[in-house]
Amino acid sequence: MAAAKERVVGAAPAGYTALAVKFGERQRSPHYLLVKEHQVREGAGTTHPSRRTLFVLNVPPYCSPDSLSRLFSRCGDVQSVDICEKPGPGEKKEKLKSKFFNRKTVTGFHVAYVVFRKPSGVQAAKALSQEGPLLISTESHPVKTGISKWIASYAASVVDQEELKAEVDAYMQDYDKKIAEEEAKAAKEEGVPDEEGWVKVTRKGRKPGLPRTEAANLRVLEKEKQKRARKELLNFYAWQHRETKREHIAQLRKKFEEDKQRIALMRAQRKFRPY
């Protein structure tokens, strides 16, 4: 397969710096992280403040936020590490972080935003390219992969029943409260005209209106059509008769034409050779 004859180790496109990174001592060929200072045209969010945030591309799958934070801690204090599948605006953190529901894990190669406490960390990180490759898994901080990782994640997939129950109950209480509030609000508004004098008709009231759904609309249209069809006389005028005959021959012709095309195609594919 195509590959460059002479390889420039650690080449990087404009603005980026390439950092070699290895899983452990034993790995011979490193991956290259591409890092640069995080910049966005629009005002940077609070999660990824400009000048303090390092944007990291091509993070290998076995490199977790913890490892990244450890790797870059030598350049300065790391405030937070965010990883996502592809670069994008800093996601709004979900307020309700659930332990059991909607857990999305980032897999494969990903990108990371490393936020330092001081802007100097970003510069220091860029300078890392001069040193040897970074090691993700060291003796003091081993990273689990393979069998041990899978066994761990199997163990983690077992839920604590009590905890789950408590969380569900709490959520449902909130939900019920919310629904009850909404209903109370709707009941208060029921039949009361707004400033311009409009009254909102809901399904709850004494005279429920048609539900505003697409299905209901279609149903009404269909009914109308049927009503019209019932009134129509099909064999009343002579031209109607003529028309049906013409239509019949046209149908036959159309079918014949289709068949001919099908045959021509099959002939082209030699479908008529019985053996």
Binding site: F23, G24, R28, H31, P60, Y62, T145, G146, I147, S148
Partner: peptide, 22 residues
């Protein structure tokens, strides 16, 4: 400047990801 797959590293990744199985 072009991007090419880092095949040597990927081949080693195959072994790292499947530690104990490969």
């Amino acid at each position: 400047l072009v991007c090419v797959p880092n095949v040597e590293a990927i081949l080693e990744d195959f072994e790292i990801l499947g530690e104990g199985l490969v």
